[in-house]
């Protein structure tokens, strides 16, 4: 008997994503009434969809052991981690600190997603972007964004 070996790692990955989502859809949707086709309940469509996703995932899982596929590209932690952090920095500090400071901080955090960081350049960039965003979004488009940490 031949040893079982993953041949399509990308397909395997996608299969796992599908299976997880399909199972999650079924588990978290189990409290929703299914109803009947004449009177579809809130759970009817989601249950069918989740079932189909799970079935596709299972099929893809088997496929990934049979058919060769390209390898998964290496994941670099730094860019994705810092970009995601910079988004969250903006989201959770804006109401505390106001747009000027938050935009500046976000620019600094985002800049570190690259390996070589020129701090001075990024401070200038941060100041520039923060002024620009206040001018465009608050003054120009009158978005209700807090500019500073105190109310105007």
């Amino acid at each position: 008997m031949a040893r079982v070996r993953v041949k399509g790692p990308q397909d395997l990955g996608a299969a796992i994503v599908f299976i997880v989502i399909g199972i999650a859809g079924l588990v978290f949707g189990q409290d929703l009434a299914f109803g009947s086709s004449a009177k579809m309940g809130p759970g009817y469509f989601p249950t069918i969809l989740s079932g189909l996703i799970l079935a596709l995932g299972t099929g893809l899982l088997i496929y990934s052991f049979i058919v060769d596929g390209p390898p998964i590209e290496t994941v670099q932690v730094r860019p994705i981690a810092l970009i995601v952090i910079s988004i969250l920095v903006f989201g959770y500090l804006l109401e505390l600190l106001g747009l000027v400071v938050t935009a500046f901080l976000m620019t600094l955090v985002a800049a570190h997603a690259r390996r070589k960081v020129n701090l001075r350049e990024n401070i200038y960039l941060g100041i520039g972007l923060s002024v620009f965003s206040v001018l465009i979004f608050v003054r120009g488009l009158s978005q209700p964004l807090p500019v500073w940490w105190w109310a105007q």
Binding site: I83, V84, I87, F90, Y92, A110, L125, S133, L145
Partner: peptide, 29 residues
């Protein structure tokens, strides 16, 4: 290196201002 922070900032401001809510940015992340 100068362009992407600007793109990111405009995106998050745009997303935030649709509903003035931090939760939108958590979703974006």
């Amino acid at each position: 290196r100068l362009l992407y922070p600007a793109i990111l900032l405009f995106c998050v401001i745009g997303v935030y201002s649709t509903n003035n809510s931090s939760a939108q940015l958590a979703l974006t992340a």
